[in-house]
Design a protein around this nucleic acid. Sequence first.
DNA 1: GATGAATGAGGTTTCATTCAT
DNA 2: TATGAATGAAACCTCATTCAT
Lengths: 197, 197, 197, 197
Amino acid sequence: MTLESQSTKEKILQSALKLFSKKGYLGATTREIAKDAGVAEVTLFRHFTSKEKLLEGVLENYSFLPELKQKMPEILSLKYEEALHLIVKTFLKSLLTRKDTIKIIKSEILTHPDKISPFFQPFLRELYETLANYFVEMQRGGILKDFDPTLASRALLGMVFSYFEVEEFIFQREGSQESYEQILRDFVYIFARGTLK
Amino acid sequence: MTLESQSTKEKILQSALKLFSKKGYLGATTREIAKDAGVAEVTLFRHFTSKEKLLEGVLENYSFLPELKQKMPEILSLKYEEALHLIVKTFLKSLLTRKDTIKIIKSEILTHPDKISPFFQPFLRELYETLANYFVEMQRGGILKDFDPTLASRALLGMVFSYFEVEEFIFQREGSQESYEQILRDFVYIFARGTLK
Amino acid sequence: MTLESQSTKEKILQSALKLFSKKGYLGATTREIAKDAGVAEVTLFRHFTSKEKLLEGVLENYSFLPELKQKMPEILSLKYEEALHLIVKTFLKSLLTRKDTIKIIKSEILTHPDKISPFFQPFLRELYETLANYFVEMQRGGILKDFDPTLASRALLGMVFSYFEVEEFIFQREGSQESYEQILRDFVYIFARGTLK
Amino acid sequence: MTLESQSTKEKILQSALKLFSKKGYLGATTREIAKDAGVAEVTLFRHFTSKEKLLEGVLENYSFLPELKQKMPEILSLKYEEALHLIVKTFLKSLLTRKDTIKIIKSEILTHPDKISPFFQPFLRELYETLANYFVEMQRGGILKDFDPTLASRALLGMVFSYFEVEEFIFQREGSQESYEQILRDFVYIFARGTLK
DNA sequence: GATGAATGAGGTTTCATTCAT
DNA sequence: TATGAATGAAACCTCATTCAT
């Protein structure tokens, strides 16, 4: 029973993620989400009270996980340029994996800032912080120049994110991890030269 | 007559831009757009046939202009780092000016790719091309290293755009030109060092 | 001027006849009638005040003319069966000529009885009367049996009208005068035998 | 459940029949149909998807039934003139019963031939056929002259239908079965004399 | 927990018509 | 006389949601 019901909820969430990301929050109707999930429309409301709660559910459920943090020890043991490469590779991988969620965030931040921001801002801050800490470490080690570490984080991640955004959403290119490999190398090369002492 | 009518059309377009960017295409109703423009709802349809045509009108009307190109001569006469600074400054200025249009593009690309892409892709390609040409010039002059010029364009503009995006849309920080000044300097510094021979 | 204006009015009436008969009174819009007539929509209202007045105009303008009456002398000089044949032939010809008007009458009598009846009832009554008078004449001459002459008129015309109706409107068969020739002969034959002494 | 729902659907169909026949398809609004049926407007759309489907529903639901066929054995056992009388009486009864449906057919055939024809043509053909078969039988028995049996069917039914049409729809006379009795007798008398050997 | 039936509110769009020129 | 621009009213239809089972 609990299992059954969990799975029902899960099915609804998956359909919602799929359809919200394809048609936007307003464009996807509860009717079609329910149909896609194979349940009656009312059942959706049993589980989520309102469409907005469903959106929240989707965002919570599929929230980013700090995979980067988990890789931090490995990163610290690598040479600077290799470390940067691992960082952006991990970042890009998570972007590709969360592509649907990112679509929703991008298209709903405008109309539901109150729903999106509280969940997305902390993630961003922590991401920047984590990377900035790494830069501070390296600056202390005398390896890097004395730049604003948070700003540099945003520069590096920004290059990657913007590239990803344009490729996937503007040019609609469905890139694979591998297809991004060389680009990441080039970005890292420029950034590394620009920040090394 | 023509003047009157143009101004009516213009008023509708402005209201549409405002409301589409605030509430999204589906979230903004023709009723409130008309009301905001101070005309009857039917009048809107006399001028645009359908809501979709209105969206097209908004996008066409407020289309980006290659202000960068116009500045190219001046850019070529400056020292590399100063040139980069002028480039990103011009770019950011246009982002801030077109903020509402960008909002619409970001949130509707998902659900109206057919409407948005044809108008946005060429602009992007030309933007990258223009900047890449500058890099090629500088590489020929022996000033820059031998990197992929288009990719580098995207790296530089990506940093700026991503920063702009996060500030304005995620952190909702209504930044002025001036408030971005130092950040642009820092980005340019990193990028310049990373690309100079 | 008067000529010009008459011709404008006439063009509108023709377009209205055409479109009312194709799409019904409600189905045809003033916009498309005006467009078909090659005038601005407002011009139509200059000439007819309202859509209803336009319908009246169409009905008046194209009203049936008692072509039968004009043929009465000839009819009286013919043998009974030949006379009947000329009568139904004349009747059918007028049906085929007025087909569009008949369409309108059939489809609008329901929703505009007040507009249609006053114009159509007198015509019918006169038609029946005229034919009945002929029957009375022939009964007095001892040629025909002693039946109700008006009822017999309606029987004869009813056969023809019903056939016409089914062919043209139900089976959509655009018949020519000639294609009806034999059918009329058969109808007349049955009716003649049924009424002759 | 099923019963409840059937009754709701039935109520809507009845109101639609009533209002379509009174005001025409375009003249009757879904709003008033729903109101007349005592349900919300949306409910109407839950059951019929679109106004056109509702029209189809009305036509299907109230389709003519070949009551004539059922009476065929009795007819065959009667004398010719009595047989004809029973035939036209049955026909007229069905016309009076289906008056509303006939109104709709008459007024919408023009604008919805695709909806009406497929449902009405087969009925007509079968009606003509059934009656023609009777005439053929009688011709074989040497009782009737050698005329085209289908044409004769249309002549007989045409007289009756046309009379009905003019009375009910043009003269708006709401006739009862009885009021038609004598007229039918007269029609039958003429037709019988005209076709008997 | 799940659902078929029902709904109030509101969406885009079209219509006949008027105003000002 | 003729018209381009504007409109109030209302059309069909859809949405998220509730009720009763």
